[in-house]
Amino acid sequence: MTDPIDQEAAYRSFIARLNERLPTKRVIAQGTLCNERGEVLLCELTYKREWDLPGGVVDKFESPAACLAREVAEELGTAVQVGELLTTTWLPPYRGWDDAVLFLFDLGRVPSAWVEGLILQVREIVAVHWVAVEDLDNHVAPYAARLLRAALTPAPRAYLEDGLPPVSADD
C-alpha cells in the first residue's frame, strides 16, 4: 500500500512540472467610471500614446477585482468600490505585447469634480480626462474603443474577443 504522504508529494511534484510547462496568459483588470454626463474617465499615460481606463496587470495570486482596487489606489490615490463585471475580452497580440485576457468592471458614477481630489502617480499617469463615448476613437486604442462601446450597452455580452462578439464556426 502506498503511503498517503508519498502520494501527496508525487501529486505536488506533478503539478509543479505542469505549472512550469503550461502556457501563462497576462490578465488585465480595468474599470469604467462615468460622470453625470455619461462620460468615461480615461488616464493619459506616460508610457504609451493612447489613453486607457484605470487598472492594470493582475499580479500572481491576485484576483482581478483586487488588482483593480489596488491599481486605482496606487495610480489615482483614491479608493473605489469595484462593482459588477461588465464583460471579459481576449486581446490578441498588440504592438509587441502578447495576448491577454481583460476583465472590465463597473466602478460606478461620480460627479465630474470628483477628479479634483485625485493624487496621480506621476510615474505612470500624466492626467485624467472625462471623454464622451462618441469621442473614444480620438483617444484610445481601437480595441479599447470597441470594448467600451460593447460594455456600455444596456445588456453587454459576457465574453468578447478583441472587443467584438466572437465569430462562431457557422459564420
Score class of each variant (00 low, 15 high):
residue 1 M to V: 09
residue 1 M to F: 11
residue 2 T to M: 05
residue 3 D to I: 08
residue 4 P to V: 15
residue 6 D to M: 09
residue 8 E to K: 08
residue 8 E to W: 13
residue 9 A to F: 11
residue 11 Y to S: 07
residue 11 Y to E: 07
residue 12 R to N: 15
residue 13 S to E: 15
residue 17 R to H: 12
residue 17 R to C: 09
residue 19 N to I: 09
residue 20 E to R: 14
residue 20 E to N: 11
residue 21 R to W: 01
residue 21 R to Q: 08
residue 23 P to I: 06
residue 25 K to W: 11
residue 27 V to R: 06
residue 28 I to M: 12
residue 28 I to K: 07
residue 32 T to F: 08
residue 33 L to I: 12
residue 33 L to E: 02
residue 34 C to H: 12
residue 34 C to V: 15
residue 35 N to Q: 07
residue 35 N to L: 08
residue 36 E to I: 01
residue 37 R to E: 10
residue 39 E to F: 06
residue 40 V to Y: 10
residue 40 V to I: 15
residue 45 L to H: 02
residue 46 T to G: 08
residue 47 Y to E: 04
residue 52 D to L: 09
residue 52 D to I: 05
residue 53 L to R: 02
residue 54 P to N: 06
residue 55 G to I: 04
residue 55 G to Y: 05
residue 56 G to K: 02
residue 56 G to P: 03
residue 56 G to N: 02
residue 56 G to R: 00
residue 60 K to D: 10
residue 61 F to K: 02
residue 62 E to Q: 13
residue 63 S to R: 13
residue 63 S to Q: 11
residue 64 P to A: 11
residue 65 A to Y: 02
residue 65 A to D: 12
residue 65 A to G: 03
residue 67 C to N: 13
residue 68 L to R: 00
residue 69 A to C: 00
residue 71 E to T: 07
residue 71 E to I: 06
residue 73 A to W: 00
residue 73 A to P: 00
residue 75 E to A: 03
residue 76 L to E: 02
residue 77 G to D: 02
residue 77 G to R: 03
residue 80 V to F: 01
residue 80 V to N: 01
residue 80 V to G: 02
residue 83 G to S: 01
residue 85 L to Q: 12
residue 85 L to H: 04
residue 85 L to V: 05
residue 88 T to D: 00
residue 91 L to T: 05
residue 91 L to R: 15
residue 92 P to M: 05
residue 92 P to A: 14
residue 93 P to Q: 05
residue 94 Y to S: 02
residue 94 Y to N: 04
residue 95 R to Q: 03
residue 97 W to S: 10
residue 97 W to T: 05
residue 98 D to S: 14
residue 99 D to Y: 01
residue 100 A to S: 14
residue 100 A to T: 06
residue 101 V to T: 07
residue 103 F to E: 02
residue 103 F to W: 14
residue 104 L to E: 03
residue 105 F to M: 08
residue 107 L to S: 09
residue 108 G to S: 05
residue 111 P to K: 05
residue 111 P to N: 03
residue 112 S to M: 09
residue 115 V to F: 06
residue 120 L to S: 01
residue 120 L to C: 04
residue 123 R to G: 10
residue 125 I to Y: 03
residue 126 V to Q: 10
residue 127 A to T: 10
residue 128 V to E: 04
residue 129 H to F: 04
residue 130 W to N: 11
residue 135 D to C: 04
residue 136 L to A: 14
residue 136 L to S: 14
residue 138 N to I: 02
residue 139 H to C: 05
residue 141 A to Q: 06
residue 143 Y to S: 08
residue 144 A to T: 15
residue 144 A to G: 13
residue 145 A to P: 11
residue 146 R to W: 03
residue 146 R to L: 10
residue 148 L to W: 13
residue 149 R to A: 07
residue 151 A to K: 06
residue 152 L to A: 12
residue 156 P to N: 08
residue 157 R to L: 15
residue 161 E to Q: 08
residue 165 P to M: 09
residue 165 P to V: 09
residue 165 P to N: 14
residue 166 P to Q: 12
residue 167 V to K: 09
residue 167 V to S: 10
residue 168 S to W: 06
residue 170 D to M: 06
